[in-house]
Design a protein around this nucleic acid. Structure first.
Lengths: 249, 249
DNA sequence: CGCCTTCTTGAATATTATCAAAGAACGTGG
DNA sequence: CCACGTTCTTTGATAATATTCAAGAAGGCG
Protein backbone atom coordinates (compact mmCIF):
# COMPACT_ATOMS: atom_id res chain seq x y z
CA UNK A 1 0.00 0.00 0.00
CA UNK A 2 2.45 2.62 1.15
CA UNK A 3 5.36 1.17 -0.77
CA UNK A 4 4.28 3.24 -3.77
CA UNK A 5 3.57 6.96 -3.47
CA UNK A 6 1.58 6.97 -6.67
CA UNK A 7 -0.61 4.04 -5.74
CA UNK A 8 -1.26 5.60 -2.36
CA UNK A 9 -2.15 8.91 -3.92
CA UNK A 10 -4.52 7.62 -6.60
CA UNK A 11 -6.19 5.17 -4.24
CA UNK A 12 -7.62 8.19 -2.45
CA UNK A 13 -9.79 8.81 -5.48
CA UNK A 14 -10.51 5.42 -7.01
CA UNK A 15 -10.41 1.81 -6.02
CA UNK A 16 -7.50 0.54 -8.09
CA UNK A 17 -7.66 -2.84 -9.77
CA UNK A 18 -4.71 -5.25 -9.40
CA UNK A 19 -3.68 -4.51 -12.97
CA UNK A 20 -3.80 -0.78 -12.29
CA UNK A 21 -1.50 -1.25 -9.33
CA UNK A 22 0.85 -3.38 -11.33
CA UNK A 23 0.93 -0.76 -14.05
CA UNK A 24 1.80 2.03 -11.62
CA UNK A 25 4.36 0.01 -9.71
CA UNK A 26 6.20 -0.87 -12.91
CA UNK A 27 7.52 2.61 -13.50
CA UNK A 28 8.08 3.80 -9.98
CA UNK A 29 11.69 4.83 -9.38
CA UNK A 30 13.70 5.27 -6.22
CA UNK A 31 12.62 8.10 -3.98
CA UNK A 32 15.00 10.92 -3.25
CA UNK A 33 15.52 13.23 -0.28
CA UNK A 34 16.12 16.97 -0.62
CA UNK A 35 17.51 19.19 2.15
CA UNK A 36 15.79 22.41 3.22
CA UNK A 37 16.05 25.22 0.70
CA UNK A 38 17.45 23.12 -2.13
CA UNK A 39 16.16 23.36 -5.69
CA UNK A 40 14.95 20.10 -7.23
CA UNK A 41 15.15 21.67 -10.69
CA UNK A 42 15.26 25.08 -12.27
CA UNK A 43 13.18 26.87 -14.86
CA UNK A 44 14.21 25.90 -18.40
CA UNK A 45 15.85 22.59 -17.58
CA UNK A 46 15.17 19.43 -19.53
CA UNK A 47 13.06 17.33 -17.19
CA UNK A 48 11.13 14.21 -18.11
CA UNK A 49 10.03 13.11 -14.68
CA UNK A 50 6.86 13.59 -12.76
CA UNK A 51 7.00 13.37 -8.97
CA UNK A 52 4.82 12.60 -6.01
CA UNK A 53 5.54 14.35 -2.71
CA UNK A 54 6.12 11.71 -0.05
CA UNK A 55 6.82 14.12 2.78
CA UNK A 56 7.80 17.73 3.39
CA UNK A 57 6.62 20.88 1.67
CA UNK A 58 7.92 22.08 -1.69
CA UNK A 59 7.04 25.08 -3.81
CA UNK A 60 7.03 25.97 -7.51
CA UNK A 61 8.27 29.41 -8.45
CA UNK A 62 9.61 31.61 -11.23
CA UNK A 63 11.97 34.56 -11.15
CA UNK A 64 11.18 37.76 -13.04
CA UNK A 65 13.86 39.55 -15.07
CA UNK A 66 14.22 42.21 -12.35
CA UNK A 67 14.88 39.51 -9.76
CA UNK A 68 11.46 39.45 -8.15
CA UNK A 69 10.00 36.06 -7.43
CA UNK A 70 6.55 34.59 -7.84
CA UNK A 71 5.61 31.40 -6.00
CA UNK A 72 2.48 29.92 -7.53
CA UNK A 73 2.02 26.71 -5.62
CA UNK A 74 2.96 25.02 -2.40
CA UNK A 75 3.07 21.24 -2.72
CA UNK A 76 2.16 19.09 0.25
CA UNK A 77 2.54 15.34 0.79
CA UNK A 78 0.43 13.42 -1.73
CA UNK A 79 0.53 16.07 -4.45
CA UNK A 80 1.61 15.09 -7.94
CA UNK A 81 4.13 17.48 -9.51
CA UNK A 82 5.02 18.15 -13.10
CA UNK A 83 1.72 17.86 -14.92
CA UNK A 84 2.01 21.41 -16.12
CA UNK A 85 5.27 20.68 -17.89
CA UNK A 86 4.05 17.63 -19.77
CA UNK A 87 3.17 19.73 -22.80
CA UNK A 88 6.60 21.35 -22.93
CA UNK A 89 10.09 20.12 -23.56
CA UNK A 90 11.66 22.28 -20.86
CA UNK A 91 10.36 23.10 -17.40
CA UNK A 92 8.39 26.30 -17.08
CA UNK A 93 9.15 26.81 -13.38
CA UNK A 94 11.58 25.92 -10.62
CA UNK A 95 10.90 23.61 -7.69
CA UNK A 96 12.33 24.05 -4.20
CA UNK A 97 12.20 22.13 -0.96
CA UNK A 98 10.98 24.19 1.99
CA UNK A 99 12.03 22.27 5.07
CA UNK A 100 13.52 19.20 3.52
CA UNK A 101 11.46 16.36 2.13
CA UNK A 102 11.19 13.30 -0.07
CA UNK A 103 9.97 12.98 -3.68
CA UNK A 104 9.06 9.82 -5.61
CA UNK A 105 9.84 10.31 -9.30
CA UNK A 106 8.35 8.46 -12.24
CA UNK A 107 9.06 8.93 -15.93
CA UNK A 108 6.83 10.90 -18.25
CA UNK A 109 6.67 7.84 -20.46
CA UNK A 110 4.70 6.19 -17.68
CA UNK A 111 1.85 8.48 -18.58
CA UNK A 112 1.78 6.93 -22.00
CA UNK A 113 1.39 3.50 -20.45
CA UNK A 114 -1.47 4.73 -18.31
CA UNK A 115 -3.34 6.24 -21.25
CA UNK A 116 -2.79 3.16 -23.39
CA UNK A 117 -3.76 0.57 -20.80
CA UNK A 118 -6.06 2.11 -18.24
CA UNK A 119 -8.60 4.64 -19.54
CA UNK A 120 -10.00 4.90 -16.06
CA UNK A 121 -6.71 5.93 -14.52
CA UNK A 122 -6.07 8.28 -17.42
CA UNK A 123 -9.43 9.92 -16.86
CA UNK A 124 -8.60 10.30 -13.19
CA UNK A 125 -5.34 12.04 -14.00
CA UNK A 126 -7.20 14.28 -16.41
CA UNK A 127 -9.72 15.15 -13.71
CA UNK A 128 -6.98 16.04 -11.26
CA UNK A 129 -5.34 18.26 -13.85
CA UNK A 130 -8.49 20.19 -14.67
CA UNK A 131 -9.39 20.47 -11.00
CA UNK A 132 -6.03 22.14 -10.50
CA UNK A 133 -6.98 24.63 -13.21
CA UNK A 134 -9.92 25.75 -11.12
CA UNK A 135 -7.65 26.22 -8.13
CA UNK A 136 -5.41 28.44 -10.22
CA UNK A 137 -8.37 30.54 -11.29
CA UNK A 138 -9.49 30.93 -7.68
CA UNK A 139 -6.01 32.15 -6.85
CA UNK A 140 -5.99 34.53 -9.82
CA UNK A 141 -9.24 35.99 -8.66
CA UNK A 142 -7.81 36.89 -5.28
CA UNK A 143 -4.67 38.33 -6.85
CA UNK A 144 -6.60 40.43 -9.34
CA UNK A 145 -9.44 41.72 -7.23
CA UNK A 146 -8.80 41.38 -3.51
CA UNK A 147 -7.01 43.39 -0.83
CA UNK A 148 -4.00 42.28 1.17
CA UNK A 149 -6.10 40.99 4.06
CA UNK A 150 -8.39 39.02 1.81
CA UNK A 151 -5.46 37.51 -0.04
CA UNK A 152 -3.82 36.35 3.15
CA UNK A 153 -7.10 34.92 4.43
CA UNK A 154 -7.50 32.98 1.21
CA UNK A 155 -3.95 31.76 1.37
CA UNK A 156 -4.39 30.45 4.92
CA UNK A 157 -7.74 28.81 4.21
CA UNK A 158 -6.38 27.08 1.13
CA UNK A 159 -3.51 25.57 3.09
CA UNK A 160 -5.85 24.55 5.90
CA UNK A 161 -8.32 22.91 3.51
CA UNK A 162 -5.55 20.84 1.98
CA UNK A 163 -4.09 19.82 5.32
CA UNK A 164 -7.53 18.86 6.51
CA UNK A 165 -7.95 16.37 3.69
CA UNK A 166 -4.78 14.54 4.65
CA UNK A 167 -5.55 14.71 8.35
CA UNK A 168 -2.64 17.06 9.06
CA UNK A 169 -4.76 19.90 10.40
CA UNK A 170 -5.25 19.77 14.18
CA UNK A 171 -8.28 21.84 13.75
CA UNK A 172 -7.78 25.44 14.38
CA UNK A 173 -3.96 25.25 14.42
CA UNK A 174 -1.42 24.42 11.75
CA UNK A 175 2.27 24.90 11.08
CA UNK A 176 3.23 27.31 8.32
CA UNK A 177 6.88 26.74 7.46
CA UNK A 178 7.21 29.69 5.07
CA UNK A 179 8.73 33.04 5.95
CA UNK A 180 6.95 36.29 5.21
CA UNK A 181 9.02 36.95 2.09
CA UNK A 182 7.87 33.65 0.64
CA UNK A 183 4.27 34.28 1.65
CA UNK A 184 4.45 37.68 -0.02
CA UNK A 185 5.79 36.07 -3.18
CA UNK A 186 2.73 33.81 -3.20
CA UNK A 187 0.05 36.44 -2.63
CA UNK A 188 1.67 39.33 -4.49
CA UNK A 189 2.76 41.50 -1.57
CA UNK A 190 6.05 42.59 0.01
CA UNK A 191 7.34 40.91 3.14
CA UNK A 192 6.76 44.17 5.01
CA UNK A 193 3.14 44.37 4.02
CA UNK A 194 2.59 40.72 4.90
CA UNK A 195 3.81 41.51 8.40
CA UNK A 196 1.46 44.47 8.79
CA UNK A 197 -1.48 42.58 7.33
CA UNK A 198 -0.98 39.57 9.60
CA UNK A 199 -1.05 41.91 12.55
CA UNK A 200 -4.25 43.50 11.26
CA UNK A 201 -5.88 40.04 11.01
CA UNK A 202 -4.81 39.37 14.57
CA UNK A 203 -6.25 42.67 15.77
CA UNK A 204 -9.56 41.78 14.15
CA UNK A 205 -9.60 38.53 16.08
CA UNK A 206 -9.40 36.34 13.00
CA UNK A 207 -6.12 34.56 13.71
CA UNK A 208 -3.30 34.31 16.19
CA UNK A 209 0.31 33.39 15.54
CA UNK A 210 3.02 31.79 17.61
CA UNK A 211 6.26 31.34 15.76
CA UNK A 212 5.32 29.49 12.60
CA UNK A 213 2.11 28.11 14.05
CA UNK A 214 -1.10 29.76 12.93
CA UNK A 215 -4.48 29.48 14.66
CA UNK A 216 -7.66 30.18 12.73
CA UNK A 217 -9.82 31.78 15.40
CA UNK A 218 -12.90 32.35 13.27
CA UNK A 219 -12.84 30.28 10.12
CA UNK A 220 -16.39 31.20 9.13
CA UNK A 221 -15.57 34.90 9.13
CA UNK A 222 -12.31 34.26 7.29
CA UNK A 223 -14.19 32.35 4.59
CA UNK A 224 -16.70 35.10 4.18
CA UNK A 225 -13.96 37.70 4.03
CA UNK A 226 -12.35 36.20 0.93
CA UNK A 227 -15.28 34.24 -0.54
CA UNK A 228 -13.40 30.99 -0.07
CA UNK A 229 -14.74 27.85 -1.74
CA UNK A 230 -13.26 24.49 -0.79
CA UNK A 231 -12.51 22.71 -4.07
CA UNK A 232 -10.76 19.83 -2.33
CA UNK A 233 -13.78 18.29 -0.68
CA UNK A 234 -15.24 16.60 -3.76
CA UNK A 235 -14.17 15.61 -7.24
CA UNK A 236 -16.77 14.57 -9.77
CA UNK A 237 -15.77 11.29 -11.31
CA UNK A 238 -19.14 10.33 -12.74
CA UNK A 239 -18.22 11.20 -16.30
CA UNK A 240 -15.84 8.29 -16.52
CA UNK A 241 -18.39 5.98 -15.10
CA UNK A 242 -17.29 5.63 -11.55
CA UNK A 243 -19.29 6.52 -8.51
CA UNK A 244 -18.36 9.79 -6.84
CA UNK A 245 -15.83 9.41 -4.12
CA UNK A 246 -14.46 11.49 -1.28
CA UNK A 247 -11.11 12.85 -2.32
CA UNK A 248 -7.85 14.08 -1.03
CA UNK A 249 -4.99 16.02 -2.49
CA UNK B 1 -13.38 18.85 -42.49
CA UNK B 2 -15.09 21.98 -41.30
CA UNK B 3 -18.37 20.27 -40.64
CA UNK B 4 -17.13 19.41 -37.17
CA UNK B 5 -15.63 22.04 -34.91
CA UNK B 6 -13.94 19.43 -32.75
CA UNK B 7 -12.38 17.55 -35.62
CA UNK B 8 -11.13 20.82 -37.06
CA UNK B 9 -9.67 21.86 -33.73
CA UNK B 10 -7.88 18.63 -32.89
CA UNK B 11 -6.58 18.14 -36.42
CA UNK B 12 -4.38 21.17 -35.78
CA UNK B 13 -2.41 19.09 -33.32
CA UNK B 14 -2.57 15.52 -34.59
CA UNK B 15 -3.34 13.68 -37.78
CA UNK B 16 -6.63 12.03 -36.89
CA UNK B 17 -7.36 8.49 -38.00
CA UNK B 18 -10.70 7.68 -39.65
CA UNK B 19 -11.87 6.00 -36.47
CA UNK B 20 -10.88 9.05 -34.43
CA UNK B 21 -12.97 11.23 -36.71
CA UNK B 22 -15.88 8.89 -36.50
CA UNK B 23 -15.65 8.88 -32.74
CA UNK B 24 -15.67 12.66 -32.51
CA UNK B 25 -18.43 13.12 -35.07
CA UNK B 26 -20.69 10.72 -33.20
CA UNK B 27 -21.27 13.02 -30.26
CA UNK B 28 -21.23 16.37 -31.93
CA UNK B 29 -24.48 18.26 -31.35
CA UNK B 30 -26.08 21.15 -33.15
CA UNK B 31 -24.23 24.42 -32.96
CA UNK B 32 -25.88 27.40 -31.35
CA UNK B 33 -25.63 31.16 -31.88
CA UNK B 34 -25.42 33.67 -29.02
CA UNK B 35 -26.05 37.40 -29.42
CA UNK B 36 -23.59 40.00 -28.14
CA UNK B 37 -23.45 40.30 -24.38
CA UNK B 38 -25.50 37.21 -23.63
CA UNK B 39 -24.52 34.68 -20.99
CA UNK B 40 -24.19 31.10 -22.20
CA UNK B 41 -24.35 29.83 -18.61
CA UNK B 42 -23.84 31.18 -15.11
CA UNK B 43 -21.67 30.23 -12.18
CA UNK B 44 -23.19 27.37 -10.20
CA UNK B 45 -25.44 25.96 -12.91
CA UNK B 46 -25.61 22.27 -13.70
CA UNK B 47 -23.82 21.94 -17.02
CA UNK B 48 -22.69 18.73 -18.66
CA UNK B 49 -21.56 20.05 -21.99
CA UNK B 50 -18.21 21.01 -23.33
CA UNK B 51 -18.07 23.47 -26.23
CA UNK B 52 -15.85 24.48 -29.11
CA UNK B 53 -15.88 28.11 -30.23
CA UNK B 54 -16.79 28.22 -33.91
CA UNK B 55 -16.71 31.98 -34.25
CA UNK B 56 -16.82 35.12 -32.16
CA UNK B 57 -15.15 35.89 -28.86
CA UNK B 58 -16.43 34.72 -25.48
CA UNK B 59 -15.12 35.18 -21.97
CA UNK B 60 -15.24 33.27 -18.68
CA UNK B 61 -15.76 35.29 -15.52
CA UNK B 62 -16.83 35.23 -11.90
CA UNK B 63 -18.49 37.85 -9.74
CA UNK B 64 -17.19 38.65 -6.25
CA UNK B 65 -19.59 39.09 -3.33
CA UNK B 66 -19.14 42.87 -3.44
CA UNK B 67 -20.14 42.89 -7.12
CA UNK B 68 -16.71 43.21 -8.64
CA UNK B 69 -15.94 41.01 -11.59
CA UNK B 70 -12.93 38.97 -12.59
CA UNK B 71 -12.54 37.77 -16.18
CA UNK B 72 -9.95 35.03 -16.35
CA UNK B 73 -10.02 34.00 -19.96
CA UNK B 74 -11.03 35.21 -23.39
CA UNK B 75 -11.99 32.37 -25.73
CA UNK B 76 -11.31 32.71 -29.43
CA UNK B 77 -12.44 30.54 -32.34
CA UNK B 78 -11.04 27.03 -32.03
CA UNK B 79 -10.80 27.06 -28.23
CA UNK B 80 -12.35 24.20 -26.27
CA UNK B 81 -14.43 25.36 -23.28
CA UNK B 82 -15.48 23.57 -20.14
CA UNK B 83 -12.47 21.42 -19.30
CA UNK B 84 -12.08 23.15 -15.98
CA UNK B 85 -15.58 22.13 -14.90
CA UNK B 86 -15.20 18.45 -15.73
CA UNK B 87 -14.15 17.68 -12.16
CA UNK B 88 -17.15 19.46 -10.66
CA UNK B 89 -20.87 18.92 -10.75
CA UNK B 90 -21.70 22.60 -11.10
CA UNK B 91 -19.96 25.24 -13.17
CA UNK B 92 -17.31 27.28 -11.38
CA UNK B 93 -17.61 30.31 -13.65
CA UNK B 94 -19.94 32.10 -16.06
CA UNK B 95 -19.52 32.33 -19.82
CA UNK B 96 -20.51 35.33 -21.93
CA UNK B 97 -20.51 36.17 -25.61
CA UNK B 98 -18.62 39.34 -26.45
CA UNK B 99 -19.78 40.35 -29.91
CA UNK B 100 -22.07 37.48 -30.74
CA UNK B 101 -20.78 34.10 -31.84
CA UNK B 102 -21.38 30.41 -32.36
CA UNK B 103 -20.58 27.47 -30.08
CA UNK B 104 -20.55 23.75 -30.92
CA UNK B 105 -21.52 21.74 -27.84
CA UNK B 106 -20.73 18.12 -27.09
CA UNK B 107 -21.64 16.08 -24.02
CA UNK B 108 -19.25 15.40 -21.19
CA UNK B 109 -19.95 11.71 -21.70
CA UNK B 110 -18.13 12.06 -25.02
CA UNK B 111 -14.94 12.42 -23.05
CA UNK B 112 -15.51 8.99 -21.64
CA UNK B 113 -15.75 7.57 -25.13
CA UNK B 114 -12.50 9.28 -26.09
CA UNK B 115 -10.62 7.91 -23.09
CA UNK B 116 -12.03 4.42 -23.62
CA UNK B 117 -11.42 4.18 -27.35
CA UNK B 118 -8.59 6.49 -28.35
CA UNK B 119 -5.71 6.81 -25.91
CA UNK B 120 -3.97 9.07 -28.37
CA UNK B 121 -6.83 11.56 -28.49
CA UNK B 122 -7.19 11.36 -24.71
CA UNK B 123 -3.52 12.15 -24.30
CA UNK B 124 -3.92 15.10 -26.63
CA UNK B 125 -6.78 16.47 -24.56
CA UNK B 126 -4.69 15.99 -21.45
CA UNK B 127 -1.82 17.88 -23.04
CA UNK B 128 -4.07 20.77 -23.96
CA UNK B 129 -5.42 20.90 -20.42
CA UNK B 130 -2.01 21.01 -18.79
CA UNK B 131 -0.74 23.52 -21.34
CA UNK B 132 -3.61 25.75 -20.26
CA UNK B 133 -2.40 25.42 -16.68
CA UNK B 134 0.89 26.99 -17.67
CA UNK B 135 -0.95 29.87 -19.33
CA UNK B 136 -2.84 30.46 -16.10
CA UNK B 137 0.40 30.56 -14.15
CA UNK B 138 1.89 33.06 -16.61
CA UNK B 139 -1.15 35.23 -16.06
CA UNK B 140 -0.92 34.87 -12.28
CA UNK B 141 2.66 35.98 -12.41
CA UNK B 142 1.77 39.22 -14.14
CA UNK B 143 -1.11 39.82 -11.73
CA UNK B 144 1.00 39.20 -8.66
CA UNK B 145 4.22 40.90 -9.56
CA UNK B 146 3.84 43.33 -12.44
CA UNK B 147 2.77 46.97 -12.85
CA UNK B 148 -0.23 48.21 -14.80
CA UNK B 149 1.77 48.83 -17.98
CA UNK B 150 3.40 45.43 -17.86
CA UNK B 151 0.06 43.73 -17.30
CA UNK B 152 -1.51 45.44 -20.28
CA UNK B 153 1.47 44.62 -22.45
CA UNK B 154 1.18 40.97 -21.46
CA UNK B 155 -2.54 40.98 -22.13
CA UNK B 156 -2.08 42.40 -25.64
CA UNK B 157 0.76 40.05 -26.52
CA UNK B 158 -1.20 37.02 -25.35
CA UNK B 159 -4.14 37.93 -27.55
CA UNK B 160 -1.85 38.63 -30.49
CA UNK B 161 0.00 35.33 -30.10
CA UNK B 162 -3.28 33.43 -30.15
CA UNK B 163 -4.63 35.30 -33.15
CA UNK B 164 -1.38 34.70 -34.97
CA UNK B 165 -1.77 30.94 -34.66
CA UNK B 166 -5.17 31.01 -36.35
CA UNK B 167 -4.05 33.50 -38.97
CA UNK B 168 -6.30 36.26 -37.63
CA UNK B 169 -3.51 38.68 -36.84
CA UNK B 170 -2.71 41.04 -39.73
CA UNK B 171 0.62 41.56 -38.27
CA UNK B 172 0.96 44.63 -36.23
CA UNK B 173 -2.78 45.33 -36.05
CA UNK B 174 -5.67 43.47 -34.45
CA UNK B 175 -9.21 44.16 -33.32
CA UNK B 176 -9.87 44.17 -29.59
CA UNK B 177 -13.62 43.97 -29.03
CA UNK B 178 -13.49 44.46 -25.25
CA UNK B 179 -14.16 47.73 -23.48
CA UNK B 180 -11.81 49.13 -20.88
CA UNK B 181 -13.95 47.91 -18.01
CA UNK B 182 -13.66 44.35 -19.29
CA UNK B 183 -9.94 44.71 -19.90
CA UNK B 184 -9.56 45.99 -16.35
CA UNK B 185 -11.46 43.00 -15.04
CA UNK B 186 -8.96 40.75 -16.82
CA UNK B 187 -5.74 42.40 -15.68
CA UNK B 188 -6.87 43.50 -12.22
CA UNK B 189 -7.20 47.26 -12.77
CA UNK B 190 -10.05 49.78 -12.89
CA UNK B 191 -11.39 51.02 -16.22
CA UNK B 192 -9.97 54.46 -15.40
CA UNK B 193 -6.49 53.14 -14.84
CA UNK B 194 -6.66 51.07 -18.01
CA UNK B 195 -7.37 54.26 -19.92
CA UNK B 196 -4.43 56.09 -18.39
CA UNK B 197 -2.09 53.16 -18.87
CA UNK B 198 -3.01 52.72 -22.53
CA UNK B 199 -2.20 56.35 -23.07
CA UNK B 200 1.14 55.87 -21.33
CA UNK B 201 1.97 52.94 -23.62
CA UNK B 202 1.11 55.12 -26.61
CA UNK B 203 3.32 57.95 -25.35
CA UNK B 204 6.19 55.51 -25.06
CA UNK B 205 5.70 54.53 -28.70
CA UNK B 206 4.78 50.93 -27.93
CA UNK B 207 1.27 50.89 -29.37
CA UNK B 208 -1.33 53.02 -31.09
CA UNK B 209 -5.10 52.70 -30.95
CA UNK B 210 -7.90 53.56 -33.31
CA UNK B 211 -11.31 52.68 -31.98
CA UNK B 212 -11.06 49.03 -31.04
CA UNK B 213 -8.10 48.38 -33.30
CA UNK B 214 -4.71 48.08 -31.65
CA UNK B 215 -1.34 48.34 -33.39
CA UNK B 216 1.73 46.82 -31.77
CA UNK B 217 4.42 49.31 -32.81
CA UNK B 218 7.34 47.58 -31.14
CA UNK B 219 6.55 44.00 -30.26
CA UNK B 220 10.11 43.22 -29.24
CA UNK B 221 10.12 45.97 -26.65
CA UNK B 222 6.66 44.96 -25.44
CA UNK B 223 7.84 41.39 -24.94
CA UNK B 224 10.84 42.50 -23.00
CA UNK B 225 8.72 44.80 -20.87
CA UNK B 226 6.54 41.98 -19.50
CA UNK B 227 8.86 38.98 -20.02
CA UNK B 228 6.37 37.43 -22.43
CA UNK B 229 6.85 33.80 -23.48
CA UNK B 230 4.77 32.43 -26.34
CA UNK B 231 3.36 29.13 -25.09
CA UNK B 232 1.19 28.68 -28.16
CA UNK B 233 3.94 28.08 -30.68
CA UNK B 234 4.72 24.48 -29.73
CA UNK B 235 3.16 21.65 -27.80
CA UNK B 236 5.25 18.66 -26.88
CA UNK B 237 3.41 15.53 -27.96
CA UNK B 238 6.36 13.18 -27.88
CA UNK B 239 5.37 11.53 -24.63
CA UNK B 240 2.40 9.86 -26.22
CA UNK B 241 4.48 8.64 -29.07
CA UNK B 242 3.67 11.10 -31.79
CA UNK B 243 6.06 13.39 -33.56
CA UNK B 244 5.95 16.98 -32.44
CA UNK B 245 3.63 19.15 -34.45
CA UNK B 246 2.96 22.82 -34.97
CA UNK B 247 -0.06 23.81 -32.94
CA UNK B 248 -2.92 26.19 -32.75
CA UNK B 249 -5.42 27.17 -30.12
C1' DC C 1 27.80 35.24 23.77
C1' DG C 2 27.71 36.78 19.02
C1' DC C 3 26.01 36.14 14.47
C1' DC C 4 22.53 35.49 11.30
C1' DT C 5 17.98 35.53 9.57
C1' DT C 6 13.44 36.96 10.17
C1' DC C 7 10.08 40.01 11.87
C1' DT C 8 8.41 44.56 13.22
C1' DT C 9 7.78 49.45 13.05
C1' DG C 10 8.05 54.22 11.26
C1' DA C 11 8.39 57.71 7.71
C1' DA C 12 8.35 58.92 3.07
C1' DT C 13 7.11 57.66 -1.56
C1' DA C 14 4.81 55.38 -5.41
C1' DT C 15 1.02 53.26 -7.38
C1' DT C 16 -3.61 52.52 -8.02
C1' DA C 17 -8.51 53.41 -6.77
C1' DT C 18 -12.45 56.37 -6.20
C1' DC C 19 -15.36 60.06 -7.30
C1' DA C 20 -17.04 63.30 -10.47
C1' DA C 21 -17.73 65.48 -14.71
C1' DA C 22 -17.03 66.35 -19.43
C1' DG C 23 -16.19 64.72 -24.12
C1' DA C 24 -16.45 61.17 -27.86
C1' DA C 25 -18.61 57.41 -30.24
C1' DC C 26 -22.50 55.06 -31.72
C1' DG C 27 -27.01 53.43 -32.60
C1' DT C 28 -31.96 54.54 -32.83
C1' DG C 29 -36.08 56.74 -33.84
C1' DG C 30 -38.26 60.72 -35.56
C1' DC D 1 -30.16 63.26 -41.84
C1' DC D 2 -30.36 65.02 -37.39
C1' DA D 3 -31.43 64.92 -32.40
C1' DC D 4 -31.27 62.17 -28.58
C1' DG D 5 -30.02 58.70 -25.35
C1' DT D 6 -26.73 55.47 -24.08
C1' DT D 7 -22.34 53.67 -23.38
C1' DC D 8 -17.58 54.23 -23.39
C1' DT D 9 -13.46 56.98 -22.76
C1' DT D 10 -10.81 60.65 -20.94
C1' DT D 11 -9.26 63.84 -17.47
C1' DG D 12 -8.65 66.01 -12.89
C1' DA D 13 -8.62 66.00 -7.90
C1' DT D 14 -8.42 63.36 -3.87
C1' DA D 15 -8.09 59.15 -1.13
C1' DA D 16 -6.69 54.53 -0.23
C1' DT D 17 -3.41 51.01 -0.59
C1' DA D 18 1.00 49.09 -0.97
C1' DT D 19 6.13 49.84 -1.56
C1' DT D 20 10.59 51.36 -0.34
C1' DC D 21 14.10 52.47 2.75
C1' DA D 22 15.96 52.21 7.14
C1' DA D 23 16.60 50.90 11.77
C1' DG D 24 15.72 48.26 15.73
C1' DA D 25 13.83 43.86 18.08
C1' DA D 26 13.25 38.96 18.46
C1' DG D 27 14.68 34.48 18.03
C1' DG D 28 17.57 30.41 16.59
C1' DC D 29 22.04 28.37 16.37
C1' DG D 30 26.88 27.59 16.55
Amino acid sequence: MTQSCLVAKLSHYLELSPSDRELLLAFEENERTYPAGQDVYRDGEYQTRLRVVKNGWFYSYTILPDGRRFIFRVHQPGDILGFSDVAFVHTTSSLRSVNGGVLCPFPRAGLHQVFARSPRLAALLFSIAVRDQVLLVDQQRTLARMSAGERLAHFLLDLAARLRVTGSFKDPVFTLPLNQGEIGDMVGLTNVHVSRTFRALEEEGLITRDGNRVTLLDEARLRKLCDFVDRYATLDATWFDVSRLPTSE
